[in-house]
Amino acid sequence: MAGKLDGKTALVTGGSSGIGLATAKQFIIEGAFVYITGRRQAELDSAAAVLGDHAKAVRADASNLSDLDSLYSQIKQEKGQLDVLFVNAGGGSFASIGQITEEQFDQTFNTNVKGLLFTVQKALPLIPEGGAIVLNGSMVSVKGDPNFSVYSATKAAVRSFARGWTNDLKDRKIRVNVVSPGPIDTPGLRGLAANEEQRKALYAHLASGVPLGRVGEPEEIAKAAVFLASADASYIAGVELFVDGGAVAV
């Protein structure tokens, strides 16, 4: 049976762990050849070993424009075009108003906003008519959680980019959409807890705000990303798809 992404070339930024790695795996299952990027070589090497021959890992910092130029030059030389782009690289630290530092602000916006913008812009010469761009947002783009104001602002910017770029790219029939996860069991989330007891307490707290009553899995985001990247979503553009167990909608 043909996969949803048969014969496609895809890029997953921040693809060495968590949602990025799960999405790279799912893209491969659906027939794509996948490039993944990340900043830490050891994690990239481990991910590449897991993904196998239908993937290639490239060390690149999404907020470094020279790294992006080198990345796209390599993809152009090796594959000629890029059919699917999943802009997943991101992160941030958290602080309440009054405690936010310039360093924290710059780091979060450089990765989540500047890095995302130029990851997309520099990819455009490689994306053919009818290509698909999926941006990784967050449910906090529409919520006002304490200590999250800077991070939330970056994810609101991601949502806004998808709206504007949908119109910018409509003549090329390139669809731009956002997948916005709720709390997901990733290494980043687990890293917020110092031990297993704290992790269980954190997950229980997060699950209490989710109508489905649990924290999500990276594979659940990956399958949503496949949907938005594939022909199954051929009439979907500019949307923010919340994959959050109903936390935003209910």
Rank of each mutant, 00 (worst) to 15 (best):
V87R: 02
N167E: 12
N147S: 14
A10N: 00
Q26C: 11
F86C: 06
V50A: 09
A233Y: 01
A233I: 04
D244A: 01
L126N: 00
N167S: 13
A225V: 15
Y35F: 15
M139W: 05
P146T: 04
R159T: 05
M139Y: 12
S138Q: 04
G115Y: 03
A231H: 13
A123D: 08
L21R: 10
A2E: 05
A55N: 05
S46K: 11
G130C: 06
A62Q: 15
I127H: 10
L21N: 10
N136E: 06
A225K: 10
S93A: 15
G115V: 03
K173Y: 11
A57K: 02
K200N: 10
S138E: 03
D244Q: 08
E220M: 01
A222C: 12
N88C: 14
Q121Y: 14
W165Q: 03
A157Q: 07
S152C: 14
T101S: 13
P181D: 13
L126A: 00
L117N: 13
G18H: 11
T9R: 10
Q26D: 12
S160F: 02
D45M: 06
R199K: 15
A2W: 04
A194D: 09
M1T: 12
V150N: 07
S138H: 03
A222R: 11
K79Y: 05
A194W: 00
P218G: 10
I19A: 03
P125V: 11
D6F: 07
V34W: 01
V239G: 03
H54R: 10
D83K: 12
V50Q: 06
G52P: 06
L51A: 05
F148Y: 15
V12M: 13
A231Y: 11
G20Q: 08
V179I: 15
F242M: 05
L82R: 08
D168Q: 11
A2H: 07
A207K: 01
S66Y: 05
I221A: 02
G38P: 07
E30Y: 00
S152E: 11
S46D: 09
K25A: 14
V140T: 13
N110L: 14
G144M: 00
S230I: 09
F118Q: 12
S16Q: 12
V243T: 10
A207L: 02
A225E: 03
S46E: 12
A24Q: 14
D185I: 02
D67Q: 03
A62P: 09
S138R: 08
S96N: 13
V250Y: 12
D185V: 05
L68E: 04
P211M: 00
G216T: 08
H54G: 02
D244P: 02
G182S: 05
A32Y: 03
R214E: 04
I236W: 04
Q107E: 14
H205K: 15
R40S: 05
V243S: 11
V179R: 13
F227R: 08
D69I: 06
F94C: 09
L44P: 13
S46R: 12
D244L: 03
G20S: 10
L117F: 15
I19S: 04
L202G: 02
E103T: 07
T37S: 01
A153V: 04
G80R: 06
A95T: 08
